[in-house]
Computed example of a mutant assay.
Amino acid sequence: MSSSEKDVERLDRALLRLRRFLTAPPVLPDGNDRVELSTLLVVDAAVRAAPASVKDVAEALVVTHSTASRLVSTAVDAGAVVRAPSQADRRTMLVEPTARGLAMLQRAVEFRLARLEGILDGWTPEEVAAFAGSTERFADRATWR
């Protein structure tokens, strides 16, 4: 077995160990509320694709249009986003984050970043930069589309 094959096996084992880190619970505590992870994903998609249609949300989350529509409805019910008709095409509904949704998303990002900073404590800036670059490259190739 070549050293490259051994490294691929090491990577496989490491990714299996990371599954709990990468698998978020379906419902997250947020103060006195509980927020579905899908709601945060919808808000994130709406921010990144602004103005975002339900189709844009479906593509960002890699789900069907009907699933995205249901997830958007859940996010609307949670007060995280609103739907508004597009000015350009009245048949298209746009998904816009609310102040509440943006605040929930910000708290989630702060939590994740603090967790990563704790894990990376003791790494040099160069090591963090190299890991970030390699992980981005890996994620770009591994994303299901």
Rank of each mutant, 00 (worst) to 15 (best):
Glu110Asp: 15
Leu40Asp: 02
Thr23Glu: 13
Arg17Met: 10
Ser53Asp: 04
Ala84Asn: 08
Glu96Val: 13
Asp77Tyr: 06
Ala103Cys: 06
Pro97Arg: 09
Ala78Lys: 11
Leu16Gln: 10
Leu41Phe: 04
Ser69Val: 00
Met93Tyr: 01
Ala132Asp: 03
Gly122Glu: 09
Thr39Phe: 04
Arg10Tyr: 01
Trp123Asp: 09
Ala49Thr: 05
Ala14Met: 04
Arg13His: 08
Pro51Ala: 11
Leu11Trp: 10
Pro125His: 01
Asp30Ile: 01
Val72Ser: 15
Arg107Ile: 13
Asp89Tyr: 09
Leu37Arg: 05
Phe111Glu: 14
Ala99Arg: 07
Arg107Met: 15
Glu127Pro: 15
Val57Ala: 15
Ala78Ser: 12
Arg48Pro: 04
Leu113Gly: 02
Ser66Ala: 15
Leu11Lys: 01
Val8Tyr: 10
Lys55Val: 02
Asp89Asn: 15
Arg34Trp: 00
Pro29Phe: 00
Phe111Gly: 08
Gly122Tyr: 00
Ala60Met: 03
Ala80Leu: 10
Leu105Asp: 02
Ala24Glu: 06
Leu37Asp: 00
Arg17Pro: 00
Arg34Pro: 00
Gly79Asp: 07
Leu120Lys: 03
Thr39Trp: 04
Glu9Thr: 05
Leu37Val: 02
Ala24Met: 11
Pro125Phe: 01
Ala45Thr: 05
Glu127Arg: 15
Glu127Thr: 10
Arg112Gln: 12
Leu15Val: 14
Arg48Thr: 02
Ala108Thr: 06
Val57Phe: 13
Ala103Lys: 09
Glu36Arg: 12
Leu15Gln: 08
Ala78Phe: 02
Met93Cys: 03
Asp121Trp: 05
Asp30Trp: 00
Arg141Pro: 02
Ala114Glu: 06
Ala114Pro: 00
Thr64Gln: 12
Thr39Leu: 02
Leu120Met: 14
Val47Thr: 03
Glu127Ala: 14
